[in-house]
Design a protein around this nucleic acid. Structure first.
Lengths: 214, 214, 214, 214
DNA sequence: TATGAATGAGTTTTCATTCAT
DNA sequence: GATGAATGAAAACTCATTCAT
């Protein structure tokens, strides 16, 4: 960039958008490199500002990290609750809908990156890990449990262990999410995620069905 | 000091023992804190030596990291190959045996920590990620595929997508491993791992069985 | 906007008032925290403006500092000269009047803070230190010397060393001033300053008196 | 310094002396420039090491500052107590001895610098200020009070206010100490400190004497 | 005039790495 | 082989200063 262009761009005002740009840049880098390996200067550069600007909006690196996680979590939580509350239909359909929606809202979105961050940094940020666990994981599990319980009560499913069933259903999607931010470049699946999920459900739902030999 | 005098000294350690202590200490910390957040001084302290000693055995931090991963991987890989080669029995039994063995050899062992490290640091160590992916993940998947293919060929299983079936079966165990090093303190399961795996297999194997309504 | 329209606006401030508010805020903070530890942002906030505004009135931080010192010094110097010029009465009375007035004008006022600043920052601002020394300290000492000389000439005082006598007389008041801005919270005197000064003079003037055994 | 010499000097071991060298360098700079304006790099350079070395011995800048003050205070406090405990003689002689000793132990020593630091930085380091006040100032005053009380009890002195008398006696020496680190270059006295103190005592002790007209 | 967003040079702090002993 | 004192480059963080509005 020439000195001239640079001069014309400095001291520009774009107040409202700034924090979001910074959070986006930070999320990208935290998800890719992890917390420690992410340099604030790189975050700033990616957001098109300088280091100092970061400190206008966030007290320090940890605060930026916290903001990234919270900013990513809340919208998803809100949407998530909405969906489950307003659903009508059979249990299998609901689970299919749930998993696909999860992929859309979480897997494909910011939250997959945040999920990887949290797995990687849980031990370094215990309070955040606890928060994330309680507000995201537990809440998500609660939703899934409820659906499966309904399925059992209606006789659609056998009397399986609900905790396990939740993981049987959702762990592969979790894996998909983590892989996106780790081994994605080395392992390309023949399937795109939505088809993968559909086929996975076909397997597990069959296993859950009543009449299956226990 | 001559080699002779030195030999006469008491309290001598076998030099080969040292790297193992260092590797163990390094694995613990890498798995807990991640690569960047792990300070070599802490590794040294945990191993009961000083920072300088680390550099006698490992060229630098990255080399230590590599050594930790390789040191953890190879024995497990070797055992894994052994098991599959020498197995006799039905497909379901084999899968049950495989998963339980995986938990014993990998989940409960060092390798669960290494697995978390690799997910967290894949982007920072591309060659290692590629290496880990090809040598561990792909090799493991190959084993699993073979078993499932056999099940399909013998008519024990339906004709499901093998790639997906592998993940349906193994992802919850992956989750268990990652959780041990992240959210373990916040989420205690009602089940201990081996029972969890058994119940999970009960669900998924049922889903894989021939005669299940597709 | 034309000058006319601007004039019609309400809530208008006299621009000359602004620097005084800024100087006051700056003095408070400089006296409390010292030069380096005082952030211009804090000065601005205390004055109810923003950082940018400071630069409308002062070229930079050092200029603000200089302005603070000069703004505090000159009025006091002027008054000081006045008093001495127009005084009539005995030497002891004059000294009593001088010290009490000093306390009122300097000790209780802004200038006590400036005095602490100058002691603290003299080495960092050599020209200002020299300036302060010559314009304030030396000028003050000159006044004091003159009074004491008079006392000696009239036979009221013994022939003591004038330089020392000045310090014997004024140092405790200097201490009082510095303490106000340093250890005041930890050391409360049983006496309020004016009584303290009176008692101090009682001691030292007695020591200066002719007829005292040398 | 040539690359060669530099190379020969690096990684040299001088363990025990190091912290004291650092403290000395730090005291010099803190006393001269104040806390904030002192750059750790300059401290390191003056001590002949690099920045990093400072952090081997002191956790951070504030810890170094604290260490400087404590390191300077304790020896003086110890000696001070000693002297007063073991003194025999008339009150005036004792005061003369005390003040001269104070100058030797404190005024000419590190503690004069520390005294200036504390006056300048009291507001920024409240706990240290409180500590310094209680351990140094109060303890010193207590000694002085005792001597003066004795003088009053023996009839050597008039019944003056003891608190004030302490300051009448010691403030000029305090001034001398502060001036050494602030205006010393601009104000050279005709007297060297010891003579100055002697003459000052001549004035004030006379004022304290019994028989002085109150 | 006044604002406040942004800068960037400067400081503190960290820590992998070196090397004389 | 082992130590630990020291380094120095790199990262976090601060804040005086600028400037478009």
């Amino acid at each position: 960039m020439s000195t001239v262009t640079k001069h014309l761009q400095s001291h520009q005002r774009r107040p409202e958008a700034r924090p979001q740009e910074l959070l986006k840049a930070a999320l990208d880098l935290f998800a890719e490199k992890g917390y420690s390996a992410t340099r604030l200067e790189d975050v700033a550069i990616r957001a098109g500002v300088t280091k100092g600007t970061l400190y206008i909006y966030f007290e320090n690196k940890a605060a930026l990290f916290r903001a990234v996680v919270e900013d990513g979590i809340f919208p998803v939580l809100d949407k998530g609750e909405d969906i489950v509350a307003n659903f009508a239909g059979g249990t299998s359909e609901l689970l299919s809908y749930m998993t696909q929606t999860w992929w859309t809202l979480v897997g494909e979105s910011k939250l997959s990156g945040i999920c990887k961050i949290m797995v990687a940094e849980a031990a370094n940020f215990p309070e955040m890990a606890a928060y994330f666990h309680n507000e995201v994981i537990v809440r998500g599990e609660r939703l899934a449990r409820k659906i499966i319980e309904t399925g059992i009560n209606t006789g659609e499913f056998r009397a399986i262990d609900i905790e396990v069933a939740v993981d049987s259903l959702f762990s592969p999607i979790l894996k998909l999410m983590l892989w996106r931010h780790s081994f994605a470049n080395y392992s390309q699946s023949a399937l795109e995620p939505r088809a993968y999920i559909e086929k996975h459900l076909d397997i597990v739902l069959n296993g859950l069905m009543a009449g299956a030999k226990s």
